[in-house]
Structures are given as structure tokens and as C-alpha cells.
């Protein structure tokens, strides 16, 4: 089997990394299953692509995409905190609404960025060999996001956001308005997700209305893979695990494609990976006596 697919998988893992960090932020830190991600990823791609096609600077286009993503997160936050809509439903509502908005932003179901200047071609023009450009961009973005997120989550505000997901009653009894912390967390997570969308559009040289479908599951799969292989004893390790998980997920996908799986079956495969990963602790506790190789029969608590 040729390993020529590895660099590509690595690049993808890195460019999708911010999105995975966003999913980590909502699902794990905030304990808020946010499905806005699917629509928000496309929103980031659509915004960046449209602005680039309007001759805007690709870097500026990416930044605007990030801001628009944060806005989408705020909408979900508003639906949940002010209108008291359940988290899952609030996310779905925003996601569905974004589908139409994304079409309006793009003005078509897809936009091509072929032979147009993007952040990646800019890096190439700066003198970096073509085959490294996307990888270098991915590493730079992931390191930057990782660093900023790590610092932020240790500020007072960051601590309050983490506590909101851990023990809402406690943090409210300490005088924090959990509506605010949820809004900020959702805005941040969706900004990251839109950042990935914008980068991926420039990497693939197109934005497509369907490119965000199933993104939440991709994000979850990556988070779980990272947690299982790297673990999360400290905050820094948990954040790095999310990025590594994103890379490994892409390597797994590239490998099975290489082995002949039709690409149309990818979503099914991803769904299966996540299902197995989520079910594993339950299966282990139920059948540990008859299947001792599964390890100790304790359902691992999500939080100790």
C-alpha cells in the first residue's frame, strides 16, 4: 500500500483541527451538544469564498468568516438561554436556518476558488514549496488556536465557562450568570468551526453547500479518538488530544479509502466509529465477565 496519502491526511487533520477544538469546547467543556457546527462550518467556507471572489484579501476574508461563525454561535446561545429551547434543538434550528443563509451568501450551491489567490497560494508566493504550504498553514493555525484557547480557559472568564459545563449550580451560587458564559462559549466554539470551514474551502479551492454535513460527528469522532489515545488528565493535554484526534481520524479515513472503500460510504463509517466509541464503556461493563479481554467492568464516569 502506498503511503502517499499521509501528507494529505495530515494537512486535513490540521485544517479541521480548529473545528474539533470547537466541538471539544461545546461537548466536553460546556457540556452543550451543539449541532450548529454543521451549518457553521459551511458558513465559514461560504463567507470566506464569497469575499475572496469579491477580491478581498484572503486573510481578511478568513477573519470575517470567524466573526460570522461567532455570530451563529450567539444565535444558538440566544435560542437556548433566552428562549429556553433545549440545547440540541437550539443547535438544529440555527443549523437549518444557516442552510438558507449559506445559499444566500454564496449565491449558488457551490463556488470555485480555482486559480484564485487564497491564504494558501499567498504562502506559496512567499517562497514556501507548494507541497508544504497547506501543512505549514495548518500547523501555524493549530498552534495559535491551541495557545490562545489554553490561555483563555485559565483566565477568570475561562474558568467560569469550564465551571458552567461542570457544575452549573455551583458557578451560579458563586455569582456567575451562566447565560453569559454559555453564550461566550458557543460563540467561541462556532468561531473556531467557521475558521476551519474558511481554511478548508481555500485548501480544496471550492466551497459547497453540503460540505458541513455530518461535521458534528467528524468532530466528535476526533475528540473521542484523541481522548482514548492521548487522554485528558490536564487541560493542555486534552486540547492537544483534540488536534491529534483530528489528524488520526483523517489518517484512518484516508487509509480505508486507499483500501478501496467507496467515498460515498464515508459518513456511514464515521457514524459507526462514533457509535462504537460511545458504546464501548457500556459494552465493557455489561460483558466484562464473559469477555475478560475488554478490561475492568466499570462504566467510566465522564468526569471523575
Amino acid at each position: 500500500m502506498s503511503l502517499a496519502f499521509l501528507p494529505g491526511a495530515l494537512e486535513q487533520g490540521l485544517l479541521w483541527g480548529p473545528m474539533v477544538l470547537g466541538v471539544y469546547l461545546t461537548f466536553r467543556v460546556l457540556d452543550f451538544p451543539d449541532l450548529t457546527v454543521d451549518g457553521c462550518f459551511t458558513l465559514g467556507a461560504a463567507t470566506a469564498a464569497r469575499l475572496i471572489l469579491m477580491d478581498q484579501d484572503p486573510l481578511l476574508a478568513t477573519l470575517v468568516a470567524v466573526l460570522v461563525g461567532a455570530l451563529a454561535g450567539l444565535i444558538t446561545g440566544f435560542l437556548h438561554t433566552q428562549l429556553k429551547i433545549a440545547p440540541l434543538l437550539a443547535g438544529i434550528l440555527t443549523m437549518i436556518g444557516l442552510y438558507s443563509i449559506n445559499l444566500r451568501v454564496m449565491g449558488a450551491a457551490n463556488l470555485s476558488l480555482l486559480r484564485i489567490d487564497t491564504t494558501i497560494t499567498k504562502i506559496e508566493n512567499a517562497g514556501l514549496p507548494e507541497q508544504f504550504a497547506a501543512g505549514v498553514l495548518g500547523i501555524a493555525v493549530c498552534l495559535l488556536v491551541l495557545f490562545l484557547l489554553y490561555i483563555f480557559l485559565q483566565t477568570e472568564l475561562g474558568l467560569a465557562i469550564r465551571a458552567t459545563g461542570d457544575n452549573e449550580q455551583m458557578i451560579r451560587s458563586l455569582g456567575v450568570n451562566t447565560n453569559t458564559t454559555k453564550m461566550i462559549g458557543l460563540a467561541l466554539a462556532n468561531a473556531l468551526c467557521a475558521l476551519s470551514g474558511a481554511l478548508v474551502a481555500q485548501y480544496q479551492s471550492y466551497a459547497d453547500i453540503g460540505m458541513g454535513i455530518g461535521m458534528i460527528i467528524v468532530g466528535l469522532a476526533s475528540v473521542i479518538i484523541g481522548e482514548t489515545l492521548i487522554g485528558n488528565p490536564t487541560l493542555l493535554r486534552a486540547l492537544i488530544a483534540a488536534i491529534i484526534g483530528s489528524i488520526i481520524y483523517r489518517v484512518v479515513i484516508a487509509t480505508v479509502l486507499q483500501m478501496g472503500l467507496p467515498s460515498t460510504d464515508l459518513k456511514l463509517l464515521t457514524a459507526l466509529i462514533v457509535t462504537v466509541a460511545l458504546a464501548f464503556p457500556v459494552i465493557r461493563s455489561r460483558y466484562s465477565s464473559s469477555l475478560p479481554f475488554l478490561g475492568k467492568g466499570e462504566v467510566r464516569a465522564r468526569r471523575q
Binding site: 485559565q154 477568570e156 472568564l157 474558568l159 465551571a163 458557578i171 455569582g175
Partner: peptide
């Protein structure tokens, strides 16, 4: 981290390092 949040009870939480 728990104590840092308790210490700032009732104050505006900013971007200062908690600990």
C-alpha cells in the same frame, strides 16, 4: 481553579489569569 472562582465571587470576571 475552584478557589479562584470563589475568590472572585460577585466580581466581573475578566481575562486575568485565575490562579
Amino acid at each position: 481553579e475552584n478557589l479562584a472562582l470563589a475568590l472572585r465571587r460577585g466580581n466581573r470576571l475578566g481575562l486575568r489569569r485565575g490562579t
